[in-house]
Simulated assay, not measured.
Amino acid sequence: MPVGVIVNVLSVLVGSLIGAFFGDKIPERLRVAMPMTFGAASMGMGIALIVKVETLPAVVLALVLGSAIGELIQLEKGIEWCANKVRRPIEKLFSSNNSMTPKFFLEQFVGIVVLFCASGTGIFGALNEGMTGNASILFSKSILDFFTAAIFATALGYMVMTIAVPQFAILLGLFLSAGFILPLVNNHLINDFSALGGIIMLVTGLRISGIKSFPVANMLPGLILVMPLSALWLRFFS
């Protein structure tokens, strides 16, 4: 039973619902300041993961190749297209009148999709629960995700709730596949995977804070490539 996955998804769902409902009652200065704080937190967590790197050339190569693949298949554009398709029915359903410009909305929305669905903590937490039954990592993540979703929902509205759908699909898939994945990897590969995830979290934080709009979603294929490349580097160059 994927208890940790369910709790994590519910934390995003409930947090975003509460944040969107009480959005107008939260002071503007708080709604502006808190996303920047969460952006800083994402950068900090990213740096903490990056320092775990074992095979830097393999991580860099995975990032470059993954970003190229993401650009070619226009992964971020696909997420933006889905968000635009879903946004209007959601706002109509909940009688929401979000005055945010489409460009700024998509900048923030894509950033938090990556933050919730592709963080190293969530991926490893789901794999760990699937392999050991220990959901403590996802429980800890759920506390942070609850407040993060609530704060972002004060600005982005009920659309933040929709992130729970891809998040559940990704985490459940990882939970179910853990028995096949984890026996094939070692701490070296996991550390390189975490380091690449840390880079993505770092640039996601920069994007959420409005410092630089990195195409973070296009970097995600690198997470699939990093372990095989790290293993090949170990075999032929170490």
Rank of each mutant, 00 (worst) to 15 (best):
A153T: 02
S140G: 15
S177A: 15
L144N: 06
F175V: 03
L184W: 10
Q167C: 13
M161T: 14
E129V: 03
G205K: 07
N128L: 09
I123M: 12
F180R: 13
G179S: 07
A164C: 07
A118D: 01
V114W: 03
F104Q: 15
V216R: 04
L206C: 15
N187F: 10
A135H: 11
F139N: 03
N134L: 04
P215Y: 13
N186C: 04
A217Q: 02
I163M: 05
I208K: 09
V114Q: 06
A126P: 10
G210V: 08
G120F: 05
S142E: 02
K103S: 12
G179R: 11
V113L: 05
L115Y: 07
T121W: 08
K141P: 05
Y158W: 12
L196V: 11
G125C: 02
F193T: 00
P215E: 01
F168N: 00
S209G: 15
I151W: 00
P102C: 10
V114T: 00
F105P: 13
F146T: 14
A164L: 02
E129N: 11
I123C: 06
A169W: 08
P215N: 14
L184F: 06
D192M: 08
I151C: 15
P166V: 06
S119P: 06
H188I: 13
G173A: 01
P215R: 15
E129D: 11
V216Q: 01
L115H: 00
Y158P: 07
I199C: 11
R207K: 15
